[in-house]
Design a protein around this nucleic acid. Sequence first.
DNA 1: TAAGAAATTATTCAAGCGTATAATAGGTCA
DNA 2: TGACCTATTATACGCTTGAATAATTTCTTA
Lengths: 210, 210
Amino acid sequence: MARRTFHRAPEAERRHDLIEATLDCIAEYGLEGATVRQIAIKAGVTAGLIRHYFQSKEHILQEAYRIVIGRLTEKAERVTGDPETRLRDFIVINLTEPVANSRSLSLWASFISRVSVDPELAAIHREGYLSFRNALESLLADFLTERGQDASPERCRTLAIAINGLLDGLWLEGCLAGELFGESELVEIALNSIETLLGLRLRPVDATSA
Amino acid sequence: MARRTFHRAPEAERRHDLIEATLDCIAEYGLEGATVRQIAIKAGVTAGLIRHYFQSKEHILQEAYRIVIGRLTEKAERVTGDPETRLRDFIVINLTEPVANSRSLSLWASFISRVSVDPELAAIHREGYLSFRNALESLLADFLTERGQDASPERCRTLAIAINGLLDGLWLEGCLAGELFGESELVEIALNSIETLLGLRLRPVDATSA
DNA sequence: TAAGAAATTATTCAAGCGTATAATAGGTCA
DNA sequence: TGACCTATTATACGCTTGAATAATTTCTTA
């Protein structure tokens, strides 16, 4: 019996593919469905290779969680432009594809459910959460300052907690039951609610500039 | 070798104990740790008994999810008193023990992560979500009406979506990182934010009546 | 108190798990 | 081209899994 032929991939590429395959498995079959063998099949390699790149299954899961958090937060944390644009984009990005969809949620929930079991995952989570909230807090500070409003640390902290909660909650609702809401309904609700919380109106979006 | 002695329990009691044991296992070790054998150990019986009461492992998980959702929503949905009191209690209940703690979150996330895999779980979730949001929507309608404000269906729907999101998000934050917040800080943020969203102040809590 | 129903334990099974190790093939460079 | 390194495949091991079935004990009731 001939062995199957294969191609030697650069380490970075192989690791990336294996992590991607892991995420696919989790999203499709849940954490329990993400077995070493399933991941290998999905990645088009044999199971042994996974242990060649990752010390254990726990390690590949931890790496995978870092990727998931990164994708959930990186775009929103890299908004550019004036304070108002940055704030608006931050909101919109978090409530539309590719951040808001059922795959993201299913990956996120899978890992969150293990945060209380695996301290390493808990650390990864904590870091992501604080970095996200800090980004939001400084967006708010800039925006309030620009509009000449109270931008004290206490107010920014409180607003960031509330708005972060609102965004998380609407993200959840959208991911879990997107079809219950109209096209961009959640984004509009978020923008209106946040305007109300801040006591400021954002200027209407210029449709021609999109 | 003598067999272990045992006691025959009424069906309802046994089923309850088995589900309780299942939840303990999930909270402690995650979904993967909730094996038939672990559940049996936790319940103080042998593994075979589980199959005597539940058709399969999937079935016991579904029953367990119903219980979890019930506990997360039943108290809030049963508030009594005038509209304002009911609304306030609804908010407070959802952000304090026993609804808000890390065990609840870990159970909730475990099941949510399977919603996209198991259609039966998805149905259970959908039902719980809609019932919760409807409860909130009618609380809002009553409160707005009492205060003589616009209580149109559209406004109530929008407000319910936003406030539901806010509560979910703050619940999440509290469960995942309760120690980052001061005593009852999240409750206060929620109450203040919701007052702002509604454009109405709730009357201060009468401390002596508690 | 004896018999019968069924709740519970005990045992077994095949399949799948994560991991370890040995064999082999692909790519690089002298 | 040929030798070498190592990425990759292949195979095996011991355990655990959910499930099925057989054996036994408890409890009710006549």
